[in-house]
Amino acid sequence: MAIIKVKNLSKTFKVKLKEKGLKGSLKSIVKPRYKTIHAVKNISFEVDKGEMIAFIGPNGAGKSTTIKMLTGILYPDKGDIKVLDINPKYERKTLAYNIGTVFGQKEQLWTHLTPYDNFKFFGAIYDIPESRVESKIKELSMLFELEEFINTPVRNLSLGQRIRCEIVASLIHEPKILFLDEPTIGLDPVVKGNIRTLIKRMNKEFKTTIFLTSHDVSDIEKLCKRVIIINNGKIVLDDDMTNLKYNYLNKKIVEAKMKEKVNLDDEDGITIIKDKGYNLKIEVDTKKRSVADAIKLLNPDNIIDINISNVPLEEIISSIYKERDVK
């Protein structure tokens, strides 16, 4: 059952233009000029209950604008949004009680207070009875392993600890959907992994639907089953992660260490990425040539060591950005 329904959604911004220098500044006061930016252009999609969806795109693609329209922060110009059958444009407050938001770049916690006081504060904001708040804090602090620093002022926490607290603060009122806007920004790989595990656990335990935006491909790869890619305000891909990999992973990277030098040239389906005489790195398009063909070309008896790998997802996604951009 779809709990987020977006149909033909569009949003434009009017940005004031200013010419260079003092003259330009004066001119913009007398006769201001504006430029219209189409941040989101006619997009439609649906998200089912309990899904973990990645909503990704390069900077300025329109993903944050979309998330802000879904959460009632921005008013759309055109189109329909229904989140839990609530229209964010007209019923912001009702929606607020049912969703949680974490913006990685914007802290919502009170930095001088402890996480515990912060959670109590959010409990009060969402009108949750005192006793319920206490038990929820206990439950979430166990799940997110906060016991150690729950009474330390937020300003003294590490970034990773703070993000964990941010997520817990947005879960106090048991939202049905959690919007995570770049939750792992600025975190080191170990902490990122930790946060991902916790998000997964939360999705499993509470069946919370998760709408995630991130620049970190491994976030998406490890967390989400479905991915929507947005670029220049348009949806360029809406597919299952497995489909994405299947369709785009027809290229393999073959790295080989050779006994003797091999003279190999680009052929149909084979691209040489690196040739250092005894060390070779080639890309094989399996739609045109099989990996076995490529190995035959290298002469198996001549190979000391070989590594065959997929093209990193990061590269696939950036190629989708570029490819669809050209179209």
């Binding site: 009170w110 930095t111 001088h112 207070l113 006081d117 912060n118 504060f121 009060a124 009108d127």
Partner: peptide, 18 residues
């Protein structure tokens, strides 16, 4: 009303260090 009292209280606690 409880939420506004909490806002007041949280800000009061926050400012004790100043």
């Amino acid at each position: 009303m409880r939420k506004y009292l909490f806002i007041y209280k949280s800000e009061l606690m926050s400012n004790l260090q100043y």
